[in-house]
Design a protein around this nucleic acid. Sequence first.
RNA 1: GCCCUUGUAGCUCAGUUGGCAGAGCACAUCCAUGGUAAGGAUGAGGUCAUCGGUUCGAUUCCGAUCGAGGGCUCCA
Length: 578
Amino acid sequence: MSFPVETVRHSLSHVMAEAVVKLYPGAKVAIGPAIDDGFYYDFDLPSPIQPDDLPAVEKEMRRIISANVPFKRVEVSKAEARDLFKDEPYKLELIDGLDDGTITVYEQGAFRDLCRGPHVDSTRDLRPDCFKLRAVAGAYWRGDEKRPMLTRIYAYAFASKAELEAHLKMLEEAEKRDNRKLGKELDLFSTHEEAGAGLVYWHPKGGRFRVELENWWRDEHYKNGYEILFTPHIGKSWLWETSGHLGFYKEGMYSPMEIDEDDYYIKPMNCPFHMMIYKNGVHSYRELPMRWAELGTVYRYERSGTLHGLMRVRGFTQDDAHIICTPEQIEDEIAEVLRFSLHMHKTLGFKDIKAYLATRPAGDGAVGAPEMWDKALESLRKAVDAQGLAYEMDEGGGAFYGPKIDLKVKDAIGREWQLTTIQFDFNEPERFDLTYVDADGQKKRPYMVHRALLGSIERFFGVYLEHTAGAFPIWLAPEQAVVIPVGPDFADYAAEVAAELKKAGLRASAMLSDERMNAKIRDAQKQKVPYMLVVGAKERDEGVVAVRVRDGRQLPAMPASEFVGMVRGLVEARSLEL
RNA sequence: GCCCUUGUAGCUCAGUUGGCAGAGCACAUCCAUGGUAAGGAUGAGGUCAUCGGUUCGAUUCCGAUCGAGGGCUCCA
């Protein structure tokens, strides 16, 4: 009989607990659920466990599995359960949190665990080659940093050996594409601990990518009815008190600096500044919708342990925009943002895109009348449907100020990344008292939506690096072509060709060092340069270039001018192919 | 911030069971007439993260500090 993979994972976690308790007498067990790619179990151990100790645990688990012991389900009363687990403080706490009535306990061999189940019938239903212990990590009891730190052992587990191996292979591939690794190898960016963690330095090649990306981003925004703003990096406490950030987002903001006896804060968000621009005048319904975008650099406090390459940083540039419109326009505006977002993602080469709709959080912390939330959510849902997007609901996952849609894209090795977020805001228009004059001459409150399509330029760069493994499409490649002379005799011709390409606006250079041609090709390949133009006697005499493509293809020899035309065509089309 | 791991040349990493430190790549100089993924030689480069302790002697052992990596939602 076969069981759902979650059941197998959960049963394996019990087997691991049995093994750990046996190998570490006195270990207290906490919880051990199935997770996306396996399972974990939290322990309070009498002595620390090291990664080196994991093989021994694995071995013991395999022994238990091969012993073919049944999983027995036992029903007990709360009092009985308390007695059974009298030596397990964490289990006792869990038992206290349960409703009165029947409690289930699962036993396999000598090991007994408080558990809702279900489980496999017997360890015979578990496969010794479908799991692998991954790592030990710290985790707070119940995720609460005020509670004790437990030792968590993570494991991968799948229904078949093939799936486990495929997963391990994906992880290996992910490691090769790690944005921090590629950032170094391709000389794109760096971070400097001595100068401040989580702050990104863009090198010349990263800068090329960014400039091309941002130019495209601005063009597309103008084409799609946006105006582009620039706003300050700091603002007086009045601004943040008005926006409410000092109330609900203070822990994400840096300490203020004093200027002329006033407190100024570095901005963690751009919206209050956009609100100020809106408030600068009286607005008619005829002006709406207003779509205001900004590549706005913000600084947010992230705890040191959470910083990670380009993916989580303390200073970053959001591709932010705020849309201010009438209630009647909101549905079309949301649909438009979604369409625009999909257009951007598809241009960048993401094909598999999924939406997540987050609704009103539970409790009374949320602002805005329930019917506003309902209307907003309805327009989000309609927009997603209109685009034919698959979506999932995230009940209660909205911010306190409004519901949202997040878009996640799937990358080349199957991982999902959240890029776009589209969020209603019922809070700030109220706080800043935004109004417009409607057709009937009455002042009314507009709707406001925040949106970021790429999220932040830094994070997007990280995601895109991992998606493309650094092999950027031609329009974003920091260096589009290199000219490689076969030998020193052809250096002049190579320089001439490179000059022609540069003059035509291509990002190109000649490799004129005294390395051998083979070494230059290898370097260019490693740098993921799209085109290598090899020139020797034949090419010089005929006035052509031999084109080697990054993927190993060899194009027919062509004059440099023809190569320029070809590249221009690909850039113009934002082609993903070379 | 907390738990585990970790910190040796610009990069990737050896190594020293305590006796003044090594390789490859990159860099510099020289040699090399070379056709699609590394030609050769020589050289320069490190207060072995920082501070303190133990010791005749510490990069190595111990402690602290700073940084980095993995984790801290997944509910019996």
